[in-house]
Amino acid sequence: MSEIKNWRNFRLYVITAADCHPGRELIQVMEQTLIGGADMLQLRNKTGSKREVLEQAKALRELTSKYGVPFIVNDHPDIALEAEADGVHLGQEDMPIAEARQRLGSGKIIGISTQCVEQALAAQAAGADYIGAGPVFPTRTKPDRAAVTTEYIRQAAEAVSIPVVAIGGITPDNAETVLAAGAKRLCAVSAIVGSEDPAAVCLALRKTIAAAGGWQKRLITLNGLAHPTSASRLDELIHLLGQGEKRLVAELDGTVVPRSQWARTLLSEGAKLELVHFVGGG
């Protein structure tokens, strides 16, 4: 079980795929996804040397910390530990969850890819913190794997209580279908990092997720009143409230949050938010 605060609030999970953006730096592309609203990030590098993966992991750790976003390393618990990542993501053919847990300790997130309900239940029983469910659609990232279709998304969402992330061939065009099947969290790879404008794609996906309303609302206190919201981040909430155009100041749990940090500020259950501005006075 992870100790990282509120990581389960994530809704848009993005995984690196450097071959999707030749000529562009990994860090720059991934920062764009964070700007667009990715709230969970995974480093997947199946071809690089361990040294290269470690360097990338350290750089992405620094980047995600800046945005307050959890960072996961694919496969390598040792690299995850050394880079101070928040956890690892395993495939069905990788090391068992129990072994990864032993290496990482209880404070890290362990996720695992699943293709059927049996795997989902086994993962939950073995102590996985979340599961990936897919590929929902045929995908360029994993061309040899048959699509599990949205039917599995429906089954997985009902079968397990840990977070389920739908993955595989998801784009802004088909995201609605996946959400309609019961998905609350989406993961996309090539549709995002292979795009000319990763931030815009992330934003589009987040809007679709928010519109689907499948997300459990958080209850926060806004200017002294109870306020249920589907927004997970401060910028999103202020936008939803239609207050984005105002010159206002936000104070979250007693601390002023500068406007430049709104997009990086997660709202947790029970948060106390004050939005103030200037009025006439003597």
Partner: peptide, 18 residues
Amino acid sequence: TFAVRRVNMDSVEDDSVL
């Protein structure tokens, strides 16, 4: 001079004195 007050959530127009 002016005062600091909570934003009026019912209005999306900028009603700040500034």
